[in-house]
């Protein structure tokens, strides 16, 4: 039983969360799919960079170790590359929940972004005007 083998089901669950969030993104009251992937990619990159630095420090400090026979042997410094999977899972699960999870529409009221304009528009029954305004803002952004 290798480290990669036990990681696989956990990573698949995390990827499932990401797929779910990507499908939800772009719905009324939720951020666009483009922004979803931007936050997802950014968070993943930041966590991988931090992991590369701090996991090495933690292993060098002797906080934990691995049985050699079970890891791939590919290391970045002291760190087995498999250790990246914990950070990947954290980003792949928590970004979808944060950006596109349930309760976002309610939380959008605290934002002055286009998403909340659209949400407010829909609530007031002026979805046409609200959507048009949002589209203008979306175009202006890119």
């Amino acid at each position: 039983m290798t480290y990669w083998l036990i990681n696989l089901p956990f990573l698949l669950v995390a990827a499932g969360f990401t797929g779910w969030g990507a499908l939800r993104a772009g719905r009324p009251g939720l951020p666009s799919r483009k922004r979803f992937w931007a936050v997802w990619g950014g968070t993943t990159a930041v966590l991988l960079a931090l992991t590369a630095v701090f996991d090495n420090i933690m292993i060098a400090s002797g906080l934990f170790t691995y049985s050699e026979g079970n890891i791939s042997g590919i290391r970045l410094g002291l760190m087995p590359v498999e250790d990246f999977t914990y950070s990947l899972a954290a980003a792949w699960i928590l970004v979808p929940l944060t950006v596109a999870g349930p309760g976002r529409a309610g939380a959008a009221g605290a934002e002055a972004g286009p998403a909340s304009c659209e949400e407010a528009g829909r609530r007031l029954g002026i979805s046409e005007a609200g959507t048009a305004a949002t589209e203008r803002t979306e175009r202006g952004r890119t």
Partner: peptide
């Protein structure tokens, strides 16, 4: 599965 060990 014996992969993770507490460090000394």
């Amino acid at each position: 599965t014996g992969i993770f060990l507490r460090g000394e």
